[in-house]
């Protein structure tokens, strides 16, 4: 189910401004990869190009290829809507749909993608997804209540349930814990560990301990210099990045000498 992601000579622009240049990486299926780096270095931008959310912003475009199991998602015949159905995303701030109940939030993707689905199937999906997001026990008695009434950590797990309900191949997470307290963060991190058995996960984080805890591979991004575009400095096994990185700049960043 999970798929491999490759980026080849990826250049990302906002109108004429080159935000990130020459990114190349390969992400193995069923693994967790963390993107770390100082603010403004383009790691979220790179993440958003993996499911073409980047181009939602007016003027944003890319050069180069992003391959999903060898298929270019920027191919001319590819519909971005289909890409996003295959590659799900969880955002920095929990964003459940405020007009919908917990139940409707979970099945929103399914219902809005394909119209009428049998109630039994929806019920199944809701339970499976909420269990998958470690939220079922907490909300099973109030599925009809508004999703916005949950706590921040619960809302974020609801958003994860919503994302996995459409059965994507890849799950992108853009600082999913930065608005949460340590206990909710722990719940999400445990969840990531169980989700990686089924999905390829890419997570952007500012928290280096978190990257060390949850990921197998880590990519370090940084600006090439003041006023220059962001770049991928190196990507390697997490253990190596945090113990013996190949690049001096990575060493400086993770040891807290800058950034």
């Amino acid at each position: 189910m999970a798929k491999r992601i490759e980026a080849k000579n990826l250049n990302i622009y906002y109108s004429k401004f080159l935000a990130v240049s020459e990114v190349n990486f390969t992400i193995a299926p069923r693994s967790v990869t963390a993107f770390i780096g100082p603010s403004g270095c383009g790691k979220s931008t790179v993440l958003r190009t993996i499911n073409r959310m980047h181009e939602v912003i007016a003027g944003a475009h890319v050069q180069g290829d992003v391959l999903l199991d060898g298929e270019n998602i920027y191919g001319s015949a590819v519909d971005p809507v289909d890409v996003r159905r295959t590659i799900g995303m969880v955002f920095q701030r929990p964003n459940p749909f405020p007009t919908m109940s917990i139940y409707d939030n979970v099945v929103a993707g399914l219902k809005l993608q394909s119209g009428r689905i049998k109630k039994v199937e929806l019920d199944d999906t809701v339970e499976k997804s909420l269990r998958g997001a470690n939220l079922w026990e907490e909300v099973k008695d109030r599925l009809g209540k508004p999703g916005a009434g949950l706590s921040g950590g619960q809302q974020q797990r609801l958003c994860i349930a919503r994302a996995i309900a459409v059965e994507p191949q890849v799950l992108l997470m853009d600082e999913p814990c930065s608005a949460l307290d340590p206990i909710s963060t722990l719940a999400i991190e445990d969840l990531i560990q169980s989700l990686k058995e089924k999905y390829t996960i890419v997570i952007v984080t500012h928290n280096m301990q978190q990257a060390a805890r949850v990921s197998e591979r880590t990519a370090f991004f940084n600006l090439a210099g003041v006023g220059k575009p962001g770049q991928l400095v190196e990507i390697d096994d997490t253990q190596k990045i945090f113990s013996n990185p190949s690049e001096q700049r990575t060493e400086d960043y993770i040891s807290g000498r800058f950034g």
């Binding site: 809507v81 996003r84 295959t86 955002f91 749909f97 405020p98 007009t99 809005l112 993608q113 919503r162």
Partner: peptide, 29 residues
């Protein structure tokens, strides 16, 4: 209507017109 809601919907693979009809307009109803 916060942009985050539109993005959440797009990220689920919902087309733009359906995002407007089912998410944006009901939120602003």
């Amino acid at each position: 209507v916060p942009n985050e809601l539109r993005e959440a919907s797009y990220a689920l693979g919902v087309p733009k017109w359906k995002t407007i009809v089912k998410i944006v307009v009901p939120t602003a109803f």
